[in-house]
C-alpha cells in the first residue's frame, strides 16, 4: 500500500498513518506501518476504483500466485493489485481497459470450462494449473489468452519490483550510489539491484 500513488483525493491508510506520525513528531518504521494499517477495519480505501469487486479479487489472487509472500513481502503486501486497479483507472487508455476486462472474463470462462467454477471459486490447485497453462512464456503464445496473461504477468511483476517493497525490501535500491564500482564480489546470499 505504501507503493500507492498519492493523488490529491486519495490517501492510503498507510500514508495517513505516516502523516499522523509526522504530525505527532513520531517516526514510525516502515515495517510497522503495514501492521498498523492492517489493524484498521476495511474502509473505502480497499474499494477498487476501476474493477468490480470480483475482478479485483481475481486480480489479487493472480498477483499472489505470480509473486507470493515468502520470508519477504509478496505482490499483495506491495499492493500490486491496488496499483494495477489504479493504473487501469487512471493510466490506461480505453483500449487497454477493454482488453483487461475481456482478459479477466476469458480467464473466468476457462475456469468454468475446466472446473465448472469462476476463477475465484476454484481451489488453489485448480488456479495454479490454470495459470501455468496460460504461462507459456517459454512456448509460443499461440492464443489470445496466453498473450493476455503475458501482459498481465508483466504488469504484476513490473508493479511489484517498482514498488517500495519489491524494489527496496525484496531487492536492493540505492538512491545515491556514489562512485560506480564495476567489479565487486557477489555471493549467493546477495540480492540484485532493482535498478
Amino acid at each position: 500500500m505504501g507503493s500507492l500513488i498519492k493523488t490529491d483525493q486519495k490517501f492510503s491508510r498507510r500514508e495517513a498513518i505516516k502523516s499522523a506520525g509526522l504530525l505527532l513528531g513520531v517516526s514510525i518504521p516502515l515495517s510497522q506501518l503495514d501492521i498498523l494499517a492492517s489493524s484498521f477495519a476495511a474502509s473505502k480505501d480497499d474499494d477498487p476504483q476501476f474493477l468490480g469487486r470480483k475482478n479485483f479479487i481475481l486480480l489479487q489472487q493472480i498477483s499472489d500466485l505470480v509473486i507470493p509472500r515468502t520470508d519477504t513481502p509478496g505482490a499483495i503486501d506491495a499492493g500490486v493489485h491496488i496499483f494495477i486497479d489504479l493504473m487501469l483507472n487512471e493510466w490506461a487508455s480505453e483500449e487497454t481497459k477493454v482488453k483487461y476486462l475481456a482478459g479477466f472474463k476469458d480467464i473466468n470462462n476457462m475456469a468454468k470450462i475446466s472446473f465448472d467454477a469462476s476463477f475465484i471459486d476454484c481451489t488453489k490447485t485448480q488456479k495454479i494449473s490454470l495459470i501455468e497453462r496460460l504461462d507459456a512464456a517459454n512456448a509460443k503464445f499461440d492464443n489470445d489468452s496466453q498473450i493476455f496473461f503475458r501482459d498481465l504477468k508483466w504488469f504484476i511483476i513490473s508493479g511489484y519490483y517498482s514498488s517500495e517493497e519489491g524494489a527496496s525490501v525484496e531487492l536492493n535500491y540505492d538512491r545515491m550510489p556514489g562512485k560506480y564500482q564495476g567489479c565487486l564480489p557477489f555471493s549467493e546470499k546477495d540480492k540484485a539491484w532493482s535498478s
Binding site: I131, E170, A192
Partner: peptide, 12 residues
C-alpha cells in the same frame, strides 16, 4: 510463476 520465479529474480 510463484516462489521459484521470485527466488530467481532475487539474484541478478
Amino acid at each position: 510463476i510463484g516462489v521459484n520465479l521470485k527466488e530467481q529474480l532475487r539474484k541478478p
